[in-house]
Design a protein around this nucleic acid. Structure first.
Length: 271
DNA sequence: ATGGTAGCCTTGCTA
């Protein structure tokens, strides 16, 4: 089974590329981020025609996450328990469409779009740290309740965990994504029993998953590694390989992120 | 040379 994650930066604009990726990669389950549409605007019929069931959440033109699967799709949750709300000053705090969980082919898959943070002094930054801490607390509970659960936390984490995950870390001094609290919040998932399987299988430095649209970042290979997959012990043991589809960044109409694909061996099966 | 890109509910915000 292949399980992938991809921040598509608008599923409606990217639809032909997403369908082509599913076909050529043999992906069975895709966790999508930044769908940028409401559920009623999501191109559900196009995925159904390709053999995929769909679970989506989205409230307006920003954020939005989904899981599409051709190996079953059950027990959908459109947020995690304790997921923090966000509201700018003078606006009532609201739940954002940044997390969706579904069970596909026996694997609990979460599609996650971690808040960006904007700047180190923006309320959005505190929200980001709170969001990561709340997710970790909840994920730890899920595994404690069910130690054999194959669980994947897949998505755009908006954290650059290591200096070698960016073309020039000095360019990020004083910016989000590289601050110590963000890195600690990211690494804490390992202490909670999760393995970041993309690093495990692709340990090379300067292995990027995102290149900005501006200033010829991709031709100059000025990239970031910010898309990851934390797996519970039961899932990590079944991951046999990871691929980053770098070619997907080429050409007109690319997302700024590329897909990250996990090869997952068959599970122990029903008892 | 103080810009540059892309997407959305586009004359501003988000990334």
């Amino acid at each position: 089974m292949r399980i992938a994650t991809w921040n598509v930066n608008s599923v409606r604009t990217r639809l032909p590329r997403v369908l082509a990726f599913l076909e050529r990669s043999g992906t069975d389950v895709l966790a999508i981020q930044e769908t940028k549409c409401r559920a009623d605007q999501f191109p559900t019929e196009a995925f159904a025609a390709a053999g995929y069931e769909v679970a989506v959440t989205g409230y307006h033109q920003w954020n939005g996450v989904a899981v599409v699967s051709r190996v079953g799709l059950e027990d959908v949750e459109t947020s995690f328990g304790g997921q923090p709300l966000f509201g700018k000053e003078g606006v009532d705090p609201a739940l954002e469409a940044r997390a969706l969980g579904a069970t596909c082919g026996g694997v609990r898959v979460w599609s996650l779009y971690v808040p960006h943070g904007r700047t180190l002094t923006d309320p959005h930054y505190a929200y980001k740290l709170e969001w990561l801490a709340a997710l970790r607390a909840r994920a730890q509970e899920w595994v404690a309740a069910e130690p054999d659960l194959p669980l994947g936390l897949l998505g755009d984490w908006n954290v650059i965990p290591r200096d070698t995950d960016v073309w020039d870390v000095s360019a990020f001094e004083g910016h989000t994504h590289v601050s110590a609290p963000e890195r600690e919040a990211f690494e804490a998932f390992a202490a909670s029993g999760f393995t970041e399987v993309t690093r495990e299988h692709l340990p090379a430095e300067r292995t990027y998953t995102y290149w900005d649209y501006q200033q010829l970042a991709f031709p100059r290979d000025k990239g970031l590694r910010i898309d990851f997959a934390y797996a519970s012990k039961a899932l990590a043991a079944r991951v046999t390989g990871v691929t980053i589809d770098r070619d997907e960044r080429r050409g007109k109409g690319a997302s700024d992120h590329v897909p990250v694909v996990l090869d997952v061996a068959a599970g122990p099966g029903p008892r």
